[in-house]
Amino acid sequence: MKCYYGRIMAVKGVSLSVNPEEIVCLIGANGSGKTTLLSAVCGLLPDWTGEMEFFEQSLKGMEPPAVVRSGISLVPEGRLIFPPLSVLDNLKLGAYTMYKKKAADTVKKDLEYVTGLFPVLKERFDQPAGTLSGGEQQMLAIARALMARPKLLLLDEPSMGLAPMIVERIMEVLEVLRKRGITIVLVEQNALAALEVADRGYVFETGSVVLQGSADELLADKDVKRAYLGKDYGDFYDAV
């Protein structure tokens, strides 16, 4: 598929697949088209051509609310929580589509479930979300996305600007979620952290997929090592 911003082609023809209950990560530098791809999946960027299917249902022309209802939730880049609203209201907003189905009881159960994953949120229920720390905000964004009961969870740079310990905690939660049957697509610049939890990965470069494979293969790949895992150029060439 290809994606456009006006006349600019940001994703130049990529094809990828995700299997149920798999963690797939998309890595690549700034501007390589990862976020664009996620926006297109969620219906936030309607300007794309090609085919996109979710459980044999085409996502063509779907508006964001319909996408969420079909079971895809996005944890957007930069978290995009609602700062003046309380933590509880943020979570309830995540369940917006659930309330529409008149499933208030389910929402209550889900609230307990997500606060079980991130206990710190419960302590801060009545606080405006903007007063949380960066890590807590990221947890809130993930919890909010889970409130819609997604089958597929898309995460856009969840590690951005966070301490390594918190990144580790978030990656642990992703593994827990996968065990509970949620499929995860993880977009990351922090390639090492992402590849450690992922099963498979795709490497993006200026709008195309240049490499794909299992996480272990990618971790071992020379090019990936050089470009994204911070191995020194010198080391690399000496070794060759």
């Binding site: 969620c42 219906g43 936030l44 508006e63 964001p64 609310p65 969420v68 209802r69 939730s73 996005l74 957007p76 995009l80 929580i81 609602f82 700062p83 003046p84 609203l85 209201d89 907003l93 995540g94 917006y96 589509t97 909010r144 996305a145 819609a148």
Partner: peptide, 16 residues
């Protein structure tokens, strides 16, 4: 209130 804060984020949680 979510729309007030960020229309994109509101859409991302499924608000029409």
């Amino acid at each position: 209130r979510a729309i007030h804060d960020g229309e994109k984020a509101a859409a991302a949680v499924g608000v029409d």
